[in-house]
């Protein structure tokens, strides 16, 4: 079964963009528009990798990260931070990579493949 990537971003256009990039490469995807609803999606879909925006309404990325990373099953879930905030590379310490918006699709795909391999 193809590996699953979950996209968390409050901008639906960006969600669609990332999803289509991953889909075209052959990954399975799922998504959430904010930190609060993301928890349910995460538990239901159990993705192999998560891309996370930092600044979102309701609940910010870092808080959502802390919440789910406390659960043992998601403790080692690889996270790629994709954000427009300056100085974000330290916001989530365990993130495997931090990508600034706007990004190069090939760059993001390279990071994902490096983390979880080909679909």
């Amino acid at each position: 079964m193809a590996k699953k990537i979950m996209v968390v971003d409050d901008d639906p256009d960006i969600v669609e963009y990332l999803v289509s990039i991953f889909k075209e490469r052959g990954y399975v995807t799922c998504s959430a528009p904010d930190g609060e609803s993301a928890m349910g999606v995460l538990e239901r879909e159990k993705p192999d990798l998560l891309t996370l925006d930092l600044e979102m309404p309701e609940e910010w990325g870092p808080r959502f990260y802390r919440k789910f990373s406390q659960k043992p099953e998601f403790k080692d879930l690889p996270v790629v931070v994709i954000s427009g905030l300056p100085g974000i590379h330290l916001a989530i310490r365990k993130a495997i990579a931090t990508v600034n918006k706007p990004f190069e699709p090939a760059n993001v795909l390279g990071i994902v493949e490096g983390a979880i391999g080909k679909p």
Binding site: D11, D13, I14, E16, Y17, L18, S20, I21, E55, S83, G84, L85, P86, N100, K101, P102, F103, P105
Partner: peptide
């Protein structure tokens, strides 16, 4: 605004990609 601008540019990339 910078966050918003970056988001917009990223989304624009998405549209072009599509």
């Amino acid at each position: 605004l910078s966050h918003g601008i970056k988001g917009l540019l990223t989304a624009l990339d998405g549209g072009v990609y599509k």
